[in-house]
């Protein structure tokens, strides 16, 4: 019987890895489109160079969080130089766990920063 996957060793996920997993959560993408989407989403604050992008992709692939997809788009949309990547079930589990972790942190921060409620007389 297959053992249940535990995402805990992957957490906390490096920010770039998290961004890549978020990109792939919706649909399969190639490296360059991942880079473009991250740049657009972060307003240009994260501009991944080829070394950083494919370094991160290599680590995520080795960790089994993403994998190469054998499905290609229509031939007129396809770029032969690119490979497409998709999220694995383990990757999805890690993404969810990381999102939950971040959510908890955000909630905690919001609780601390929230203005004190006035006392009832």
């Amino acid at each position: 019987m297959k053992q249940r996957f535990d995402p805990a060793p992957f957490l906390p996920l490096p920010h770039v890895h998290f961004e890549i997993l978020v990109c792939l959560a919706e649909h399969e993408q190639h490296g360059y489109s991942i880079k473009r989407e991250i740049a657009v989403r972060t307003g240009g604050s994260i501009e991944l160079g080829p070394g950083s992008l494919y370094g991160a992709i290599r680590k995520l692939t080795e960790g089994g969080l993403i994998e190469e997809s054998d499905q290609r788009p229509e031939s007129h949309l396809d770029d032969e130089r690119r490979r497409y990547y998709r999220l694995t079930p383990d990757g999805r589990a890690v993404l969810k766990a990381e999102a939950a972790r971040l959510r908890t942190l955000v909630e905690l921060a919001e609780t601390r920063f929230a203005p004190a409620r006035p006392r009832r007389a």
Partner: peptide
């Protein structure tokens, strides 16, 4: 100057991204 395995696996895509 990248390790051979990185070059072999991702060199083509890195070059393509650089060109774009």
């Amino acid at each position: 100057l990248y390790p051979a395995e990185v070059r072999r696996e991702y060199g083509r895509e890195m070059r393509a991204q650089f060109l774009d």
